[in-house]
Design a protein around this nucleic acid. Structure first.
Lengths: 215, 215
DNA sequence: GTCTATACGCCGATAGAC
DNA sequence: GTCTATCGGCGTATAGAC
C-alpha cells in the first residue's frame, strides 16, 4: 500500500477518533512520515477530506441503489440498512464534524449537500418500493415521506456522534447493532408485521456476516 | 448590559453562524472590545462555552420538566416540543459541533453527557405520561421507548445542523416549524388520532405566539 | 518519493499601563 | 474594567536537499 492510501486511511482513523480538527502534523506523526510528504500526495488538507467524502458517497450510493428494482424484498431492504450503517460508521467523522468541514471550504459544501440530498432521495425510493410490499394502512403524504426519510438520515448520521459523546468511547460492533435497532424501530409502524419481522431477522443475519472486504 | 453578558450572547451568535471554531480574537472584534478584555471576564475560552452549555441545559430542563404531572395534556405536550425547538435553535452550535467541543475538555464532556441523559430521560417520562392519555394499541417495550426518545433527541438536536448545511443559510422561523413537523411525525403512530390532532394544533398555535422574553 | 528546515500566520493567554 | 503590546505555541504550506 502506497503512502497516498496510507494517508487516506490514517486520516479517517484519526479523525474518527479525535474529530476533524486533526492537523497535518499530527497526521504525519501518526503515520510515521514527514509533514512535507503529505503535500507531495495532496495539494492541501482539504483535498484529503474531499477524497474521503467522495469515497464515502460512492460506497453508500452503491449500497442504497435500488433503482433497478420494481418491488423491494425484505432481504434487499435489510441490506440497505446493514450496509449503510457499516459505511456511515466507517466514515463517521464526516457527519460528526459536518459543520466544521463544510464551513472551511465552498466546494466541500456543495459536495456534502449533494451527498445528503442523493442519499435521502435513495431512501425515499426504497421506502416507496417497500410500502408497496407492505400494504400498510398507514399512508404517508409525499411531504411526510420526505420528512420520514430525513428523520432516518438524521438518526443514521447522528447516532455515531451521540454514542461517542455519551458513551465516552469509540464505536464498536454493539453500537452499530444498536443503530440498526433505532432505524428499524422507525419503520415499524409503516410496514406490515410480516415485512417488519423479515427485515429485522435479515438485518441481524446480514450483520453477523463479515463485511465484504475490498481486494 | 455588561460586557460579560455581551460576550456570552456574542459567542452564541457567532458560533451559531460559523461553528464552534470561532476564536477569542474574532469574538472580541465582533463585539468591539479588546481580546484582553475577554480574559478579565472569563478564565479562558472553555469557560465561555461551559457557561453557555449550563444556560442551555437549564432552559431546556425547565421546559421539559413534567415531573409534577400525573397525566400530560396535549397542551403541555406541545409546549415541550415548541419550547424545546426554540431552545435548541437558540443554542444550536452546541449540538452541531458537539464532538469538537467535547474533545477539547474533560469537564465539558461530563456536563454535556449529563445534559443529554437528563433530557432523554425527561422525554421518556413525558412519553409515558402521554401514552396513558393516548391508549394507543401500539405498545413500546421499555428498551424501545428509550430508543424512541433517543431518536427524538437525535432529530431535535440534529435538524439545525442538517438544515444549515443542506439549505446553505442560517436558520429562521420556517426551519423551526419544519423541525416541529419532523418531531410530530415521529410520535404520530404511537398516540391516538385525537391526541395527535390536538398536539399538532397546539404546536402550531403556541409556535405562532411570541416566545416569552426574559426581563 | 521522502526527507529536513523553515516561513508565515493565527490563536490563546498574560503583563502591565491607564 | 478596559486597553495595548506581546509572548509562545501550533498548524498549514513551501523550498530545496537527498
Amino acid at each position: 500500500m502506497g503512502n497516498r492510501e496510507k494517508i487516506i486511511r490514517g486520516a479517517i482513523e484519526l479523525m474518527n477518533a479525535r474529530g476533524s480538527a486533526v492537523g497535518t502534523s499530527a497526521l504525519a506523526e501518526h503515520l510515521g512520515i514527514s509533514p512535507g510528504n503529505l503535500y507531495y500526495h495532496f495539494r492541501n488538507r482539504e483535498a484529503i477530506v474531499a477524497e474521503i467524502l467522495t469515497r464515502c458517497a460512492d460506497d453508500l450510493h452503491a449500497i442504497l441503489d435500488v433503482s433497478d428494482q420494481s418491488e423491494i424484498s425484505p432481504e434487499r431492504f435489510a441490506s440497505c440498512y446493514v450496509g449503510g450503517v457499516r459505511v456511515l460508521f466507517e466514515y463517521r467523522f464526516l457527519f460528526s464534524s459536518a459543520l466544521e468541514l463544510v464551513s472551511s471550504d465552498a466546494s466541500l459544501t456543495a459536495a456534502y449537500r449533494k451527498f445528503s440530498e442523493t442519499s435521502v432521495g435513495q431512501l425515499k425510493l426504497a421506502l416507496s418500493l417497500a410500502r408497496a410490499v407492505a400494504a400498510s394502512e398507514r399512508a404517508l403524504t409525499d411531504d411526510d415521506a420526505r420528512r420520514f426519510c430525513q428523520n432516518m438520515w438524521l438518526i443514521w448520521t447522528g447516532w455515531p456522534r451521540y454514542a461517542q459523546v455519551n458513551l465516552g468511547r469509540d464505536m464498536d460492533q454493539t453500537d452499530q447493532m444498536e443503530c440498526l435497532r433505532h432505524l428499524t424501530l422507525l419503520i415499524e409502524p409503516y410496514v406490515t408485521p410480516a415485512f417488519f419481522q423479515a427485515v429485522s431477522e435479515q438485518a441481524v443475519q446480514q450483520f453477523a456476516q463479515p463485511p465484504k472486504t475490498l481486494a
